[in-house]
């Protein structure tokens, strides 16, 4: 099928403002949007720039706005979009070039919340810390995060409020707060209780809608709020 692509272009070396490039392409309906981007880059315009790596939705490189919503280009099939597709970079972060945005702030927020197991007790060599399957299940959903940035850059609060840590950072804090082996919950909760923490969330659900891994992001944030409120 023939598909028209409108892709937002911006090269800081020569452009003062972003513009839209138009490309027409013959594709299979079952092709991924990423396949089309590659085809345009390889056959039509070598300067088109985007991030990509694993091409099947586990590395998180190619999050972008496809027809106005944050998606991974490698997880979207063209048949679900029809013959006109608009592709733009994620919102809220500086565009480095074309569809590539600066992720430093994103990872910065992530690092603020101690995204690692805090537990200095030595369980002894040659054995594991025990954890029941039920305790393991509690934080299973948030271990799926691949840090693509789709949730954080879908959130209307992060677009305008640069203090907000954003959904992805909270998801990764959640993954440790509810891990029965972790002992750093209080410190993380203290940060999450601050002005840039969970209380900025207005339960808009854009993050959940955008998550390519199907993580119930809003649920995780709400759970943290309830924990802060009840101390449980």
């Amino acid at each position: 099928m023939e598909v028209q692509f409108r892709i937002e272009r911006f090269n800081p070396d020569q452009d003062t403002r972003p513009w839209f490039g138009e490309y027409t392409l013959e594709v299979e309906p079952t092709d991924r949007v990423l396949d089309a981007l590659n085809e345009i880059k390889w056959k039509q315009d070598g300067t088109l720039t985007f991030r990509r790596s694993c091409a099947h939705g586990v590395c998180g490189s190619d999050a972008m706005r496809i027809n106005g919503r944050n998606r991974l280009a490698c997880k979207e099939l063209i048949r679900d979009y029809g013959d006109k597709i608009t592709i733009e970079p994620m919102l809220g972060y500086r565009v480095i070039k074309d569809l590539v945005v600066d992720m430093e702030d994103f990872f910065d927020s992530y690092r603020t919340l101690q995204p690692y197991l805090v537990n200095d007790e030595n369980p002894g060599a040659g054995r594991e810390r025990l954890q029941s399957p039920e305790d393991r299940e509690v934080f299973d959903d948030t271990t799926k995060c691949i840090m693509c940035g789709a949730c954080t850059t879908a959130c209307p609060i992060t677009w305008t409020n640069k203090d907000f840590l954003g959904p992805a950072a909270i998801v990764n804090a959640h993954r440790f707060i509810y891990d029965s082996r972790d002992k750093g919950a209080n410190e993380r909760l203290e940060v999450l209780n601050s002005k840039s923490g969970v209380w900025r969330c207005r339960t808009i659900f854009n993050c959940t809608e955008a998550c390519p891994r199907g993580i119930e992001v809003t649920r995780a944030i709400e759970q943290v709020k309830r924990t802060l409120l009840t101390g449980e």
Partner: peptide
């Protein structure tokens, strides 16, 4: 990471 914001319970 960023400077850690100091929390009070005000926002809560």
């Amino acid at each position: 990471g960023r400077e850690k914001p100091v929390g009070s319970n005000f926002e809560l």
